[in-house]
């Protein structure tokens, strides 16, 4: 994703290797490190150390009430295999991810193409589509809960008004799952639309001109030019949306609290409850460690992408 040179805030291709400013010899050793102290310090304390500490914790049986802990090796992990609740949350995360990611992909490409031209009305619509992404999870959950609220909400109000049967949006397994997925896609699609727009701006307009002269219709142009040219963007969207989906927590917690039953309880919520409701932090962390390979794989992919873009 590169951009015109006068738009410095977008991710641009910069050669990262030669940093041109070599400071005076007497400062050579220290100043860059000193400049990095606040950021690296905070990250160490609140990210890297917790990562390692988490790994250690997952090998312990921690009694949060008495404050005692006992080394139990891999028992927490073995317990995961026998825990139907964890299995269910893993399954829930899987279907959630597998529906949210394609829907976000299709949605963001559709909206992006629709709002591609920079006419005032489309620019306005872009801002509108982005709005859900700047709202807090609490506000998003409140708005959707109101919308889907059974008997009283507008969706059911509309269905009744149209003489159709109402749907128990948040209180039956299947419809609650649908509601959660719809809410997530609605929340995030504007953000991914921006990526599609950035990708589209990279496509040479002459390609379309040439295709038009050859007599290719809109569908053919989309299929043979737009889609192939968007490939890097699509890859990035799939990666980031997967990250977003595997970590989904707050909005769902507020919207359905994981219910009905445990139909919409995903891994992170399961972990949160193990730690803070059932007070088994060691076991909770073991669950987090299980998601780690997924995240690391995605991290690796992203790292490669960043390298391609000249970020590292």
């Amino acid at each position: 994703m590169s951009s015109p040179r006068n738009e410095p805030l977008q991710l641009q291709k910069v050669q990262s290797q030669p940093t041109l400013y070599s400071p005076r010899p007497e400062h050579f050793r220290w100043s860059p490190y000193l400049f990095l102290v606040p950021t690296v310090g905070m990250m160490t304390l609140f990210s890297f150390f917790p990562m390692l500490y988490g790994l250690w914790m997952s090998l312990q049986d921690i009694d949060a009430i008495r404050g005692t802990s006992r080394f139990i090796g891999l028992n927490n992990y073995l317990r995961l295999f026998r825990d139907p609740q964890f299995g269910e949350s893993l399954f829930n995360t899987a279907w959630y991810t597998l529906t949210v990611v394609p829907l976000i992909l299709i949605g963001s490409i559709a909206v992006g193409i629709f709002l591609r031209e920079s006419r005032p009305a489309r620019l306005l619509a872009r801002v509108g589509f982005y709005i859900p992404f700047v709202l807090s999870p609490v506000v998003v959950a409140t708005a959707w809960k109101w919308l889907l609220n059974e008997d009283l909400g507008v969706t059911d109000g509309f269905l009744k008004w149209a003489g159709l049967p109402t749907v128990p949006w948040l209180s039956a397994d299947f419809s609650a799952r649908v509601s959660v997925v719809v809410t997530t896609v609605w929340n995030l699609v504007g953000f991914y639309m921006l990526m599609v727009l950035a990708g589209l701006s990279q496509i040479n307009a002459e390609l379309y001109e040439a295709a038009r002269i050859e007599g290719a219709d809109a569908w053919k142009r989309f299929w043979h030019i737009t889609l192939p040219m968007l490939k890097p963007t699509i890859l990035l969207i799939v990666i980031l949306a997967t990250v977003h989906a595997t970590q989904a927590f707050e909005t769902i917690l507020l919207l359905t609290a994981g219910g009905p039953g445990s139909a919409t309880r995903l891994i992170v919520q399961n972990m949160y409850q193990s730690a803070f409701n059932r007070l088994q932090p060691g076991y909770a962390v073991a669950q987090a460690v299980v998601i780690l390979p997924i995240i690391l794989f995605v991290a690796w992919l992203q790292m490669r992408l960043f390298k391609q873009e000249g970020m590292i």
Binding site: T39, L45, F46, S47, P50, Y53, Q247
Partner: peptide, 19 residues
């Protein structure tokens, strides 16, 4: 720094809480 971008609080919340 990139790894911080990718390993979010959702995953780390328990050890972070203890810190």
């Amino acid at each position: 720094i990139i790894s911080v971008l990718l390993v979010p609080l959702q995953v780390l919340m328990v050890p972070v809480f203890l810190v």
